[in-house]
Design a protein around this nucleic acid. Structure first.
Lengths: 170, 170
DNA sequence: CTCTTCATGTAAGAAGTTACATGATTTC
DNA sequence: GAAATCATGTAACTTCTTACATGAAGAG
């Protein structure tokens, strides 16, 4: 149930509406835990029912500003420290690799070349946004930078691996 | 719909029953695309309805041996070459990082230390199974080794990143 | 007054998880 | 004869995706 905790995490920085949260997801968690609008509103409803968040204020256009409760904060902390991250992260990019023997070698190489290029693009993109996240001094920015560094290193290794893999196919 | 293609991929190596496939998933795809037994049997039924596999033989205890059809093979190839791998791979390990500011620094360091240790364990485990997969000469083994190399490099970078991240927290 | 942004929701379906249920065959 | 392995399935529930639906408020 990570979406729930992603929402709690964002609300732990301060109150926000579903609309605000959607934008926050897009700028901060989109590469780690993307969420759709319908999922988000549904989750906020369940979170409120469970008493982990409350509607702290209502604004124009039916805006509901949610705030995390003490119980919600406790649940967030419990999840971070006591719940083991899932071992497996599915990758349909890697799944295809197992079956590259079913297509002609030149096609298999093209597939790996493409993955190397895509990884290089992601790398360039992240390098590009780096200067814009250097400045923030709040926790989300500080730890966001650590997460960004992970993305950078991951893309790097993906690019190198894909290039190596391409060279392995005769 | 990657599960479908994982099944087609395994069947492209030769006929197998649901039970056989379950074992194959466990030894080859468990870290890339795990599947549960109930998912597998349901998918085989749908695949047969769609004409992508057929029941090639029946054995004792109601055993049904499935074989991929020409349509199934075409669909597998189409998926590998024409369908873009999904951009995002969710990681609840990384999601927690964004919210480490909500727990005391020593706890945050412990979390990252734990992730470094887990990555080191995975690395050691993969190094351990490496000799056993060196030998296979079929496509699934050859490409399985390339996938294993990915796992190795990924674990390595995860370990290094987690150690670095730990050092970043004052 | 028109366009953009803000704002919340519902519905249908696909995919994944967990638990239950059953029984035949082989091995020791 | 008991235990392990082989073998298939169903049911309930959670999670995620895609598409639809509606409308108020602010900016120019």
């Amino acid at each position: 149930m990570s979406l729930r905790h992603a929402v709690l995490g964002l609300l732990s920085e301060g109150p926000a509406s579903g609309y605000d949260l959607m934008k926050l997801f897009d700028v901060s968690l989109s590469n780690t835990w993307p969420a759709t609008q319908s999922q988000l509103y549904a989750e906020l409803g369940k979170l409120a029912d469970a008493g982990l968040v409350t509607v702290a204020a209502e604004g124009p256009r039916g805006r509901k500003e949610y705030a995390i409760t003490e119980d919600g904060l406790a649940e967030l902390r419990r999840w971070i420290t006591d719940v083991e991250p899932t071992r497996v992260n599915r990758s349909d990019m890697l799944l295809r690799v197992f079956f590259l023997g079913r297509i002609p070698p030149e096609r298999a190489r093209a597939y790996l070349r493409e993955q190397a290029d895509l990884a290089a693009e992601r790398l360039a993109h992240m390098e590009g946004i780096r200067p814009f996240v250097e400045s923030g001094t709040d926790d989300l920015s500080r730890y966001g930078r650590i997460a960004l560094e992970y993305g950078l290193r991951l893309s790097q290794v993906q690019r190198e691996w894909a290039e190596w893999a391409e060279s392995q196919i005769k």
